[in-house]
Design a protein around this nucleic acid. Structure first.
Lengths: 189, 189
DNA sequence: CCCCCCATGTAACATGTTACATGATTGA
DNA sequence: TCAATCATGTAACATGTTACATGGGGGG
């Protein structure tokens, strides 16, 4: 039996309940009201996803308000769930991930705080920087080859993307300083 | 009969065949090899989507290589398709679109070159700037309220997002100058 | 002659969307 | 008591993913 890997939404839910136990409703509110917000949020997505995670033992729900019907379940991550989450956030970053899995990449970073140490975080940022260093020039080259005739919208859209990646590169260079390498450990501040 | 509106992928296909007639294979290659690349690209997504567009008269396919079996179809946009495309790219931009439909927003910009004049493009950029001016401070406020204890990953991920939006604001301010307003028309360069 | 690229398609499957439904609790 | 918010769920549907299948043509 091949265990197909969780979706982004499922990882997001797993990470959030690991940070702190929550109900399905809590999770929905997070997606509705915070900047985490493009991960769905409709009950038809959340509740089935929680059920799947529970079936795979990645999270477990404790029933509160036991006497009423339609009991409320408070979920938290199981040790196995934490392992799976850690494995996911620790995956190597490929250049193409910047194009095809960009959201997932930042989600991984946002959720890694509670499952890995600063060495893994640092490695993540180093790999992201490497990917950006190889991808940005590639995009600039594409931009340079685009013909000047016709509407500029395509070219402008591409340069918007390039600027976004450059902003991310600056961000990563700043961020990495908060995670000193083994050699420099403890010397910061 | 309610005509449900096309998906992003369908709009992308519609826009691309309007720029220039193409086969399904051409479209797949675009998604595989260019920066337009996170829009799917698998045959199981492209060919059914083209079929749907054809059924709604948004595109039409001309059959080439008529004598062989498995004939190759070259698609182009119908006048009705162009209307629908124009309507879509011209929609008003809401602040929440920045969070929930960001990709779609940039796709709309990239595809609008061949269907609207520079006044509409300018309006698009003005509305995007307005949305950014209202959204960026909102995010900064959220960032300021986040507690300093615990792992910084969440805060850093948020500031990465903020920097991306700021980069987009700079880009939009630059880009808008390529589309002079009615009052300044023709005065540029 | 074989492999790769051109070129199109389908079938099974999982996920997510939209809309609906239920009922408890809290504050005005 | 009325409305809003808390809280969970399901059913129908459309879309997209993965994997498979077919076949022609060109180049080494």
């Amino acid at each position: 039996m091949k265990k197909r890997s969780p979706t982004s939404l499922e990882y997001a839910l797993l990470g959030l309940v690991h940070m702190q136990p929550r109900t399905g409703y809590d999770l929905r509110k997070i997606f509705e009201t915070t900047p985490m917000g493009h991960y769905s949020s409709s009950p038809g997505a959340i509740y089935p996803a929680l059920k799947r995670l529970e079936q795979q033992w990645l999270i477990e729900g404790e029933v509160a308000a036991q006497d009423t019907m339609r009991p409320k379940r408070i979920y938290s991550a199981t040790p196995h769930g934490v392992d799976i989450l850690r494995e996911w956030v620790s995956q190597a970053i490929l250049t193409e991930d910047l194009l095809r899995k960009d959201d997932e990449l930042m989600l991984r970073f946002a959720l890694m705080g509670t499952v890995v140490d600063h060495n893994v975080t640092r490695r993540f940022l180093e790999q992201m920087l490497q990917a950006l260093e190889s991808y940005i020039p590639e995009l600039e080259e594409v931009l340079a080859t685009l013909s000047d005739v016709g509407p500029p919208h395509g070219r402008l859209a591409l340069s918007s993307g390039i600027e976004a990646y450059k902003a991310r590169r600056r961000w990563a260079q700043e961020a990495i300083q908060e995670f000193p390498s083994a050699g420099n450990r403890g010397r910061k501040k």
